[in-house]
Design a protein around this nucleic acid. Structure first.
Ligand SMILES: [Mn+2]
Ligand SMILES: [Mn+2]
Ligand SMILES: [Zn+2]
Ligand SMILES: [Zn+2]
Lengths: 150, 150
DNA sequence: GCCCAGATAATAATATTTCTTATCTAGGAT
DNA sequence: ATCCTAGATAAGAAATATTATTATCTGGGC
């Protein structure tokens, strides 16, 4: 659970650079993330931090993880938006996922299709499908953010 | 909102093949999916179907979409599991996502890395990252399902 | 040490998804 | 066509996940 000083300096630099305070809560959430394996859920981080900061609230963990995502310290896995969405198009295609509004855009690509499954992926189990997932900020969100900057 | 007969025959075949009943609710959810664009959420499907079947319950929509996913008529986008997960590893890597237990496994691939962003994806906005997402059933889930079949 | 904008804890509220149970119905048997 | 029942649904409660509100607290510049 103890995070090395070099890792903490990453947090320190990121927060200082954005003019954001270095709080106990943020340090502990960051440490918990570093100590975690795989792709931790909010609850897992919350329960871990709670052992050292028993009074921390779930809200703070949510807020902090959102902040860290904005700072690029962590990456939310796919749609953070808490609604399940379905793809009616079952043919092979790829996705551009907007990290702001979480809309999903389809595309195919002449340069990479048909996309083959890397050997490394097959060792995990039975493959059902493979697709490219491009994360980014969509045109609409870019325009909206530029407008607000004025 | 009206679905062509040929599309409905896909539903009919899928249900009959699995020995599952063809109900009003399933037909309307299926039609709504066909009429939808993009990647509809459960609520969007529910609201749409409700115009024609005012008494349908959210539970039935959830249940039906889960069934359709199992039949391969639709594909749930990424982790259907309703918990947000974060990637602490911000370096470029790829994912194997288990469609049963929704666990996520990391991998890199000498054959495709570094992965470049297809030209077609750049038109949607500002690209932040790209990764391969392999969907499948992990070893643990495969073993568990084989055991239960006895 | 003082100060206060920014951050947090507690709590309530909202949103999403699943469970329980009584009722209903699709479709095979008669 | 009617009967029958396993499977399906509706309604409502419950469990989870997430966000909003507000009073209180604190990091860090002075
Ligand atoms: Mn798609
Ligand atoms: Mn990962
Ligand atoms: Zn967007
Ligand atoms: Zn699995």
């Amino acid at each position: 659970m103890d995070t090395s000083g070099s890792e903490l300096s990453v947090l320190s630099a990121a927060l200082k650079g954005a003019g954001i305070r270095m709080t106990h809560q943020r340090i502990e959430v960051f440490s918990e993330l570093q100590a975690s394996h795989g792709h931790p859920s909010v609850t897992e981080i919350y329960e871990g931090v709670r052992k050292r900061l028993p009074s921390i609230s779930p809200d703070t963990v949510y807020r902090t993880l959102r902040l860290f995502s904005e700072l690029g310290l962590i990456i939310p896995h796919s749609s953070t938006s808490s609604v399940t969405r379905f793809d009616v198009n079952v043919h092979e295609h790829h996705h551009f996922v907007c990290t702001r509004c979480s809309r999903i855009f389809d595309f195919t690509s002449s340069s990479i299709d048909p996309l083959e499954v890397p050997r490394e992926a097959e060792s995990f189990g039975e493959v059902q499908g493979v697709q490219l997932e491009v994360r980014g900020i969509c045109r609409d969100c870019l325009r909206r953010e530029r407008t607000q900057e004025e």
